[in-house]
Design a protein around this nucleic acid. Structure first.
Lengths: 149, 149
DNA sequence: ATATATGCAAAGACTTTGCTATCGA
DNA sequence: TCGATAGCAAAGTCTTTGCATATAT
């Protein structure tokens, strides 16, 4: 996975390291939404000496650079997403699964929210953080109980 | 603030204590979205011996009972909201302000999402957690920088 | 009376950071 | 070369929990 040269962040030159590129590759190859610790476990298979602090620092930097997204699904742990296009998530409150909601021109009930909410509140809306929390089809079938009880 | 008698949670009788009722009263009286620590500071003025652990335990219990809501605006700290009707928040990423988005019959761009997303994903959607992140009018005026930089 | 809740302090979970050595451009 | 990054371990922040005491019903 290559990165454009000479990126700067807060006036510092960003350097490509094996740790950073591996973390980016891993996230781009997944369609899941791992926690920092899960990224660490995966990357450690390729770079056994990597430390969790490096993982956190790189996840933070990559998301500041806009190469990945840091997402929040209502749990204490942040999750990371290799998809950077605007999209939304459904979260199962029984098994914890997080799935993307695919949107396209025929199906984008979110886009119009920007304007409506800006007008309503006077905020300049930059991002919608939308989690739809419910029960995934598998958990419905199995009658699983909510996680939190 | 009174609580109905003989509530049970997980087969245990819920008891009303001064700590619990004070926390509930405080939250119901605020239109802000305080952190647990902010609730603690406010409640301590009335009950100086209360401990932070009690505040956390009661905030958790009151939200399990549906008397308050625990909300997550994308920051590491949970926030608490005395309004339990379905509503949404705008979050300023410069000053951290969290405001309610008032909805009514003429303005509820969210309600239709339930059905659309259920149909799209196969999830039984129970709740929409929507934070609109942007810049509040004051921060636009003052040219404030984002919090995270 | 007794099960539930409190206060306190310790522990837990997750994340950040200081420091020295190493590495990339 | 030399400034940016890594590894390590310690510290930080927020939240939960074990235990003895107090309290609501």
């Amino acid at each position: 996975m290559e990165m454009p040269d000479q990126i700067r962040l807060q006036n510092k030159k960003i350097r490509m390291t094996s740790q950073r590129s591996t973390i980016l590759e891993v996230l781009k190859s997944l369609r899941t939404h791992p926690t920092a610790d899960q990224v660490y476990e995966i990357v450690k298979k390729r770079l056994p000496k990597i430390s969790i602090g490096t993982v956190y620092r790189n996840l933070d930097m990559l998301s500041r650079l806009g190469l990945i997204k840091k997402i929040n699904v209502g749990t204490p742990q942040m999750r990371f997403d290799g998809r950077t296009e605007e999209h939304y998530h459904v979260v199962c409150n029984r098994c914890g699964k997080v799935e993307d909601v695919e949107i396209n021109d025929d199906f984008d009930p979110f886009r119009k929210l920007h304007k409506a909410i800006s007008h309503r509140t006077g905020f300049e809306i930059k991002a919608l953080e939308i989690n739809m929390v419910g029960i995934c089809p598998d958990c419905v079938k199995r009658g699983n109980l909510p996680l939190e009880d």
